[in-house]
Design a protein around this nucleic acid. Structure first.
Lengths: 235, 235
DNA sequence: TTGCTTTAGCACAGAAATGCGCAAACAAAC
DNA sequence: GTTTGTTTGCGCATTTCTGTGCTAAAGCAA
């Protein structure tokens, strides 16, 4: 079979050239079929007492919204691709994307062989640009909100993984996602946890779990109705 | 730039041909640089009261052992690639590989741009072929056993992820990895948990946690010295 | 039949966790 | 200044969990 050497002059990516290591068959990695690798991200935030996910317009036919995503570029870390896609698709600055799962169903994308590395990131609502599209991930009577079910590809599953992971992280740590601006009150922290976990929490039980992991600033909240609350920061 | 259409006649993989969808730039997915995607697997088993990981000979220079791995083939699920690599590299039948993490450091492999999707699988020691290489993952006084530290690439980290995930699964469920052949005694189950978790467990506390999740078969163990133990199966 | 070993089960004490009611400490209203 | 409403902090009782020691049960071996 006649082979053409194909070269790229972009991002210093290595090409099929005499300098690449060859294997026992005299071939380099570029001689084998390879998938396209994409990242898709469930960007979660807390607003109006609930957990919300960000959607962007989906250019594909028929469906209007999707999770932000992009193909990974040579030399780019997956997390950096996530951050780039959040900037480019939603004008949002992501923070610390965490991997969730690789979706690898061979026919998942009609354009060809595509793997998607699903991620989750969390951003405080106040850091989101005005006008971004957020939908609730809260379940009502066990039924998914229609808009989550209608998302393309495996995006509904990605949201499930994301919610599960963030909820797991908020089981015992005060604010692992940094959604509150320190200093904050215990009530603010508890309300955040109730929004994330989707359930109400007993005030005293919550306080005993969190206080050992917080630093009391010695100050109290002001301008609030009722007894002023002590202010805390994370360790 | 002159392009040659490159065709493959292997495994029905799609090629850069007129039939592939093109994007807004008139290009298909194959026109963009793509990584090689590999899977690496920490295959864990329990033997001699401890958690062990399987190693295979590493063909690379300098180091002798590594976790089994392979490049993913077109149309192949990641889990199937894991199972294939365990068969081909170690003669082992894997069971239910679980994804751990994607290792994506651009320079992690001198052959080129390679992503590795790390997996964990567990197999009962009795199902492993004779002569496979197992090393302990147990830490002694907080120090990693030398052989784990010396593994190539990010394999030591993969083992860490794998151990953490399996230990997490065995925190509250009887035998999520199916390492015991039913029926089994509570002592056998407890010893499995002690091997996985790397700590001793209080007999009654353990029994209270497990019994509600087990079905008593009504039979007892035979051929044992002392009072025969009740036999259980998982729900 | 007796002795030994192992397992099962439970009572109990102590530790840990939970939830509630009340006093304290504020702001707002009068 | 007093009263009302709200929120916080904490003491207390209750509940749950854990680990220990003990004894009975149930086998095998002698």
């Amino acid at each position: 079979m006649l082979h053409c050497l194909r070269k790229y002059a972009q991002n210093g990516v290595m090409t099929s050239s005499p300098s690449l290591p060859v294997d026992g068959f005299g071939k380099t990695l570029l001689d084998y079929p390879r998938p396209s690798v994409a990242v898709d991200t469930a960007l979660l935030t807390v607003h109006d007492g609930g957990l919300k996910v960000l959607l962007v317009p989906h250019p594909g036919a028929g469906l209007g919204w999707a999770l932000p995503g992009t193909f990974v570029r040579p030399g780019e870390r997956l997390a950096d691709a996530v951050l780039r896609s959040l900037r480019e698709k939603a004008g949002v600055s992501g923070r610390d994307p965490q991997q969730l799962h690789v979706f690898d169903e061979p026919g998942r994308d009609e354009r060809g062989w595509v793997l998607s590395v699903a991620h989750v990131d969390v951003v405080p609502f106040g850091e989101l640009p005005a006008g971004v599209k957020l939908i609730s991930v809260t379940e009502f009577a066990g039924a998914r909100v229609a808009q989550v079910r209608e998302l393309p590809y495996d995006h509904a599953q990605i949201i499930d993984y994301a919610v599960a992971q963030v909820r797991s992280q908020y089981l015992s740590a005060p604010d692992p996602g940094g959604l509150l601006t320190p200093p904050f009150t215990l009530k603010e922290l508890r309300e955040l946890h109730e929004a994330v976990r989707g359930e109400s929490l007993q005030r005293d039980t919550f306080r005993r779990a969190m206080e050992p992991q917080l630093v009391a600033t010695g100050e109290i909240s002001d301008g609030t109705k009722g007894r002023p609350a002590a202010l805390f920061m994370p360790y």
